[in-house]
Every structure is written in C-alpha cells, then in structure tokens.
C-alpha cells in the first residue's frame, strides 16, 4: 500500500510507520513542553526539553477563557520552528484532517490530535495513515489506545486532565492501560478474539500486545503533570516520556508567568523546566527528585480535577 502526502514523496506504509515510531523512540526518557511563544521555546530548549509543543494557549488558559480552541497560527508555529533545533510538535483538533494537512505542510515534526482543542468531529478521528508526519493521540484505556494506533498513531499518551496541575487522571489512565496490557498477556490465544471485542479494538493489534506485553508504539504520559515528583510518579508507573503543559509557564488560573519583563517570574519558569527534566531522567532516584523539587521556585496553583463538572472534562472528548 502506498501513501501519498501530496508533496511528491511516497513511503509504503510499513516504512512510514517505522520512521514515525523511530522519531518517538528518540524522544524517550525526556520531557516535551507546551510553549506559546519564542521566548518560552528558548527556555524549554535551554532547560533540556526533547521537543516543544507549539500552541496558542496552554490548556489552563483554554480552561479559564473558554471559547473554541483551534490549531495554532502557522505564523507562531513557523517562528518557533525557526528558533528551535529540537523537534516541534503542534496540535490539530480531533477529526480535523485539514488542520493536520496544514501542520504537515508547515513541516512540524509531530502532530498531536488533541482533546485539549475543541473537537471538530464527534465521530471520526483523523486517518493518520494518510500522512507522512507522525501523530500522537491521547488515550484513557487500552481499547482507546489501540483504536488510535489502528488509525495510524505512532505514539500514545495518557490523556489525564489537561490544564489542571492535578495528576490524578494521568495516574488512573496509565494504571488502566498497564493493567489491561498485563491482563491480555495472561489470556489463551483463543480468548483474544473476545478480548478484542470487549476492548473494541482490532484483533491483530490485540494479539500483538498480548504477545509483546506492551503497546506497539511508545507510551508517553500527559495531563496534569506539574511537579518533579509528578514526573517521577508517571515514569515509575510506566510512562516512557513526560508531556508538561501548563505546569511550567503558568502561575494562577489563566495567567502565564511574565518571562519577558519580570526577571523573578522568568527565573521561576526556568527553575520549573529544569527540575522536571532532571526528575524525569532520575525518576527512580528519590534523592535527585528531592534535589529537583527543592530547586523549584513556586508552582502552578492548579485546579482539583474532582472539582470539575463532568461536562467540562477534556478527557472525555474522543472515544
């Protein structure tokens, strides 16, 4: 099967998928940071982020301000690509394949089909096989992860509850995915057909997971991770890389730290970014996580996920 991205370049689909998961492999053990401007992107790269996610508003601001959240302006994305040597990711709305086409044409390195933005399709996710650019998608459980992989996702991340600074749902989702994978490995071969039915996922993928004991693509974590200890927790639960959204550049509610004019707030952002990178690398060494936590000045105020009404949760977007 050939795929054509419309730019005169073709890969057969297995080659394409290997290149996509290959880049995900290079991002393992690192931190991917949300950035809203060039100044934040510079701080992220300087702190040791393995990639940045370029977006107009971080989840905490979207939550505070409301309205329709869309793909970032191509102007912003290009500016950030211009100053970063590390990979640049950007978000498209769930099902909005035209936004994804735009992002691919800009040359971003990874597209996040994200529940953080307002969904554009209530039924269909993007057919990600049709793109050369790799995709990452969120998942709350194994069935959802495998549905996204069958659509062509090259990386899965837990959804968590974005923009809250409350790690509780990222924990729930990671534990669920890991537990469901373990359960599959204990099944007899002839039991996998019913397992696939129950997971609402393709049998072939279910069989692969049962045999390998892990997802066929890297499994990262996102959604509410705000402190070095949060990063350590998610890595110990099985995450291979950490996404940090609002946790680095936000102070209270929808207000970002002023890193351009206020030197104290700039130092605060740098201290948080560095500390999360350090704690992600040495996640299994509590002494270093303690050292990283101690170096942090201030923290995002956060919003308890339990206080959010069901209809305002972002994680229930997508299926």
């Amino acid at each position: 099967m050939k795929e054509n991205n419309g730019f005169g370049k073709q890969h057969d689909s297995s080659t394409g998928l290997r290149l996509k998961t290959g880049l995900a492999e290079m991002l393992k053990g690192g931190v991917i940071m949300d950035v809203m401007n060039v100044a934040q992107a510079r701080i992220a790269e300087e702190a040791g982020a393995v990639a940045v996610m370029a977006l107009e508003r971080v989840p905490a601001m979207i939550r505070a301000e409301g309205g329709v959240a869309r793909m970032a302006s191509p102007r912003l994305i290009k500016e950030i690509m211009e100053v970063c040597t590390i990979p640049v990711m950007a978000k498209a709305r769930i099902g909005h394949f035209a936004e994804a086409q735009v992002l691919q044409s800009l040359g971003v390195d990874f597209i996040d089909e994200s529940e953080v933005l307002t969904p554009a399709d209530e039924q269909h996710h993007i057919d990600k096989h049709a793109f050369t650019t790799p995709f990452v998608c969120g998942a709350k459980n194994l069935g959802e992860a495998l549905r996204r992989i069958s659509e062509g996702a090259a990386m899965i991340r837990t959804k968590g509850e974005p923009g809250t600074g409350d790690v509780v749902h990222a924990v729930t989702h990671m534990r669920t995915i890991v537990r469901e994978i373990k359960a599959l490995t204990a099944l007899r071969g002839d039991e996998l057909y019913a397992a696939a039915k129950n997971l609402q996922a393709p049998y072939e993928l279910v069989r692969m997971v049962a045999e390998a004991g892990k997802l066929p693509v890297p499994n990262f974590s996102a959604g509410g991770i705000a402190t070095p200890a949060d990063a350590s927790l998610m890595m110990q639960l099985g995450a291979e890389t950490i996404f940090v959204g609002s946790g680095i550049f936000m102070k209270e509610g929808g207000t970002p730290l002023d890193i351009e004019k206020n030197d104290e707030e700039r130092k605060e952002a740098i201290s948080r970014a560095r500390a999360i990178v350090l704690a992600t690398l040495h996640y299994d060494d509590p002494k270093i996580v303690a050292e990283a936590s101690e170096a942090v000045i201030g923290s995002m105020k956060g919003l308890a996920a339990a206080a959010i009404e069901e209809k305002n949760l972002m994680q229930t977007r997508g299926w």
Binding site: G29, E45, A47, A49, V50, P87
Partner: peptide, 14 residues
C-alpha cells in the same frame, strides 16, 4: 544513542 544532543549536553553539565 540517538536522541536530542542539546538535551544530552544539559544533563552532562551536571
């Protein structure tokens, strides 16, 4: 291995 060389350098400074 492969990865991000800028990230490696940051860690190595420590």
């Amino acid at each position: 291995p492969g990865g991000e060389s800028t990230t490696f350098l940051k860690h190595l400074e420590r």
